[in-house]
Amino acid sequence: MRRERRPDFDAYAGDLFGEMMLADTAPAAAPPARKPLSRFVPGLAIAAIASAAAAWLSQNYGVPVILAGLLLGLALNFAAGDARTHDGLDWISRHGLRAGIVLLGCQVTAMQVAEMGLVPFAGLALVMAAAIIAAMLAARATGQSPAVGLLGGGATAICGASAALALYGVIGRERVDQAQFTLTLVILAAASAIALVTYPMLAGALKFNDAQAGFLTGAAIHDVAQAIGAGFAVSDPAGAQATVVKLTRVALLAPLVALAALWIARAQPLAARVGQPRIPVLPGFILAFLALVGVNSLVTLPPALAAHALTASKTLLLLAVTATAMRTRTDLLLDLGWRAVMPVLAATIASLTVALGFAWWAL
């Protein structure tokens, strides 16, 4: 009797045999080719050119350098349409900002914080808390996420663009898109520029003494250079007081970022990755910032070194801000509307109001 062949065996036997042969004879997977470092050059070059133009505008026309970098970056964002610029722009916007924040540690010591005194420190804490609470309430009232309020309020409470960059590192693009982040930077820079001009005049109109004027400008103006500059626009003693108050705010950057990472993970959690919960940790660049503050507190750095570190920090932050603006789609920026402005606006008004009240009644 002729034995029938099973069609299912005939259909799969060849495939199984072929797969076994391919598995035995397949060459080992080649290691991934290393990408050349030259891929960073186009993006870094265009960011450097735009940043140099922003610095020139600031030096010759008095435009705040961060605001100039933002606006030039947005104007040149068509260049990011070329994929060859992406690696360089993304690298400097991420790693440049972290290195710039770390170098700010050379400007702060624990002694400066202690020198401020308990009463002004309490007032500063009130100003910072008011800014964050006002921004969170404004975000909630306008239907925005808690992350947007935390970004605007925290940046206003500490040191403007630098704090916004640090907070964005722990908040993440999953919670706040890049268009919202860029608009936050623009509003922060504009508000700080307006404050630089108006707050010294306001202190003069209210007949504040040097301690009051220095506290007002140091506690209520976002940008470091503009806060200190506004203090010195009143008088040298007011400038010295503004410097201590403002640098104390900068020193509080690390604790704020740590608390923000813990809070946002609970208030607006992200989906777990690879079956593991997302655990917020203090970023390495904030730890490095704290370490540099500790070194600067224990060892007196040469003035020339501190000055070069400040210049390098400003340069890296300017490059990071410019690159971030270049990678932002302006159509998404325009779609955000007036609601996106409200957290920073509310935080600015709250910080000014509380700083004025505290300077008037307590100093």
Rank of each mutant, 00 (worst) to 15 (best):
G275P: 04
G96Y: 02
G160A: 09
N209H: 03
A189D: 07
A79E: 06
G62F: 04
W338L: 15
D10T: 13
P255D: 08
M1D: 15
L216T: 10
L97R: 10
A325M: 03
L292C: 05
V299Y: 11
K314M: 12
F208M: 15
L290G: 13
T300K: 10
T25P: 07
A23Q: 11
K246N: 08
I221Q: 00
V127L: 05
Q180L: 14
L332M: 13
K246A: 08
L137E: 12
L104T: 01
R329D: 15
T156V: 08
W338A: 15
D223R: 02
P32M: 07
I101S: 01
T25C: 13
L57F: 11
L305A: 09
A306W: 06
L118G: 08
G43M: 02
A68W: 00
A340E: 02
A166Q: 06
R266V: 09
G105D: 03
F121I: 08
A195F: 02
A48G: 14
G239M: 01
A99Q: 12
T330S: 14
A33K: 12
G62L: 05
P237D: 03
Y168W: 14
L118H: 11
A340T: 04
I49D: 04
D210E: 10
R329P: 11
T328Q: 04
N77M: 09
R5I: 15
L206C: 07
